[in-house]
């Protein structure tokens, strides 16, 4: 086929940011998958609850303290997270580096109350279906915290390497921040479900 030149694209940027970035859309799609997963666990929680004569089946409602502490920690972490994202947008390398280190801590610290959340459920995963679903919800969310934590650490290392000062890397930082927001926001309904629904 003969070609007729209709468009010259040599002036376009070499990398798209924001909604012009492929990884942004990829991250969004994965968030949709996982959001669907979280929504399902909540649906299953309510389904099992609707079948049970009592709820929780054979346990007191979970203690509030560790879960609430974790929730507050997660909510607080949104602030530095947004800052890192903004710095990445402005390509301020030094701030991004510090911010990522801070975010690594902000990701690691919630794991401490998380460790105490499991005993605070007062039930083991193999006692009954209630135990199974709450352990699964907590476990699933913990996996999300841990994966994002590892991702943040690797990214922090990357930002201290010679590859750092690159629009792509700043985009990665932004996507990482986006994903952390998702991990935090997804927790809120799970928190309500685990800790408050049994108290209704």
């Amino acid at each position: 086929m003969k070609e007729r030149i209709a468009l010259d694209l040599s002036k376009l940027p070499l990398h798209g940011m924001g909604s012009a970035s492929l990884t942004f859309w990829g991250t969004a799609a994965f968030m949709l998958i996982e959001g669907m997963g979280f929504a399902l666990t909540i649906a299953i929680y309510f389904y099992l609850m609707s079948l049970a004569p009592r709820w929780p089946i054979e346990a007191p409602p979970p203690d509030l303290l560790p879960g609430t502490v974790l929730t507050l920690l997660l909510l607080v972490s949104i602030v530095p997270n947004m800052l890192v994202s903004r710095w990445a947008q402005r390509k301020e390398l030094r701030k991004v580096r510090l911010g990522l280190i801070a975010m690594a801590f902000m990701g690691a610290i919630p794991l401490i109350p998380r460790v105490f959340e499991f005993p605070a459920l007062h039930i083991s995963w193999d006692d009954d279906a209630y135990g199974s679903i709450v352990w699964t919800i907590l476990g699933l969310h913990t996996i999300h915290i841990v994966t994002d934590l590892i991702d943040t650490i690797v990214l922090a290392c990357l930002m201290f390497s010679k590859h750092a000062d690159n629009t792509r890397r700043y985009g990665d930082v932004e996507d990482n921040a986006l994903y952390w927001n998702f991990v935090v926001l997804a927790w809120l309904p799970l928190y309500g479900c685990i800790y408050w629904v049994p108290r209704l």
Partner: peptide
């Protein structure tokens, strides 16, 4: 027909 409009500059 026979021609295809294209973009250049990549």
């Amino acid at each position: 027909g026979e021609t295809l409009p294209v973009a250049t500059g990549l």
